[in-house]
Every structure is written in structure tokens, then in C-alpha cells.
Write a protein that binds this DNA or RNA. Structure first.
Lengths: 134, 134
DNA sequence: AAAACCAGTTACTTTGAAGTGCCTACTTTT
DNA sequence: AAAAGTAGGCACTTCAAAGTAACTGGTTTT
């Protein structure tokens, strides 16, 4: 077993539960597809592990309810770890596991593509504008 | 202009419309996130360009309504092209553009990861079972 | 004394996406 | 004569996901 995260303090659900279609890609997409999910991963990747409240403040508009849901799902999938110190007040830190880092690496390729397309489309819009306005 | 697809026969909407957050990744994810979308792309990638009816038959459970929606979105994003021959009966063929092929290449990395994780998790389940049953 | 912080949970409401069924207009097949 | 195929369009319903608000309990701050 690879120790890239502290031992979980709650029983984790089955990992990447198989989708109706049985396709592993489908399972993964169902997971990262959820609203806010990619943003959460992005913040944890670029700003490092952080506590619940910090994470919530870093993502304006995200409610505690949805944040909790997402964190649970990602923890179940072993993409995030959860480190809970039962002090008063309690202290809970979330961070990317090795899997999480690997996932972000693969998603970075998608990000590069998305950015390049956006730039290309912006140029095309300018060309359209110039063509229209002589 | 790169000619990897026939001229569109209907006005296309703005390409990858900017998301509320303005993040290009968010725009791309909103697009490929929709149910069935990845499956449609996968079928067009592995089986080549095909007509509406064929595509629908190749994806059991997918309704014409949703298929049409997806195809329109993907066409707007220049990921698919649409070739319409106004014969009787009409003949409409869909296929991946260069962008579509590029996207599928990047998504293949995600697919490999998803598959490997699923295999790893299956092994872990077996290990759990053996540990429990001695 | 009251408010804020911590990490959530619970109940209720809203809304947007997906599903379902029926329609087109013309041709070919049975 | 009737059914099926072609590529969808349109209206209606349903349901799960997201949003909203209130609450926890002990501690620190104002």
C-alpha cells in the first residue's frame, strides 16, 4: 500500500462505483462532472492542501452543503485525503492524493487545449469583425 | 482557414461561449460534461462519420431529442461537422473535425487513467475479500 | 452579552435537464 | 393500402441536483 495520505477516519465507499454502462471512463466523468468539482480540485492543486473554511472562501458562491458533498465523493474515490484533528474548534484539512495529482496532470492537457481554442476563437472573432467593418 | 469540414449550412453560435467564471476549462467541461456526449464522440471516433439514424441506433437508450441537442452543441463548438444533403429522404452525416480528433486524443489519457484505477481497485477488493475470509 | 468561528447537518424549495410521446412530408417497401 | 424510414421539432412531465436557510456546541473575540 502506498502511503500518500493519512488513514481515513470514516469508512470509504466502494471506489469509483461502476456506472450503468460499466465504462470506466463514464465512472470517472460522473465524478469530475459535478458542478464545482473541477474548481475545487484546481484550487487544491494550485494553492495546496487547505481547511474546509479556507476552501469555501476561495470558491465564492459555493455552499457548504455542496462543498461537503463534493469532498466526500472525491475522498471516496481516493482523489482527496481528509485529515481531521478533533480539537476545539475542529480542524479538517483536505489535499490531493497521488491519484488526485495524476488526474490533474491529465486534465492539464485538456486545459491547454481549451485555452488554445479560446485564443483561436478570439482571433477569429476579430477577423470577422474586421471583415464586417472593412 | 483550415478545411477539415464542409461549410456549415446553418449559422453557428459563438464558439465555446465563455462560462460565468470565464475559465476556458469550465467552458470545455460544460460542453463534454453532458450525458451521452462522450459516448457520441467515442462512437464517431471509433466507427467513423455516420448519419443521424445510424448514430442513434448505435447508442441504445438515447432519444432523438437529446441526440439533436448534443450534436448542435458539438457542431457549434467546431468539434463535429454536419454534412446535409437535401435529398429525399434527407441525408445528414456527422463526423469529428480536427478539433474533435484532438479532443479525443487528450481524453484518451483520462481513459487510460480511469481504466488503470478500476483495475487497481478491483485488485484491492480481492485483497480485502481474502483478508476477511482468511 | 452578543457575535463570530469552526465544520459541517438537516429540511425545504427551486430549476434545469432529461425522458416521453406525437407530429411533419415525402418515398420506398411490404 | 398501410407501414416504415428519413431527420428532426414541439409540448408536457418527471426527477435529481443545486440552492437556501436555519441549526449544532464549545470557544474566542468584540
Amino acid at each position: 500500500m502506498v502511503h500518500d495520505a493519512p488513514m481515513p477516519q470514516r469508512p470509504l465507499k466502494p471506489i469509483l462505483p461502476p456506472s450503468p454502462s460499466g465504462c470506466p471512463m463514464d465512472s470517472l466523468l460522473r465524478l469530475i462532472m459535478g458542478q464545482w468539482t473541477c474548481y475545487i480540485l484546481w484550487v487544491l492543486c494550485s494553492q495546496g492542501p487547505q481547511r474546509f473554511g479556507t476552501l469555501k472562501r476561495n470558491i465564492p458562491g459555493l455552499s457548504a452543503k455542496v462543498l461537503t458533498e463534493r469532498l466526500r465523493l472525491l475522498e471516496d474515490a481516493r482523489i482527496l485525503y481528509r485529515e481531521h484533528v478533533p480539537s476545539i474548534p475542529p480542524q479538517v484539512t483536505y489535499g490531493l492524493t497521488d491519484r488526485g495529482k495524476e488526474l490533474l496532470t491529465a486534465m492539464d492537457e485538456l486545459f491547454k487545449i481549451a485555452k488554445r481554442w479560446q485564443d483561436e476563437d478570439a482571433e477569429e472573432s476579430v477577423a470577422d469583425y474586421d471583415r464586417y467593418n472593412g
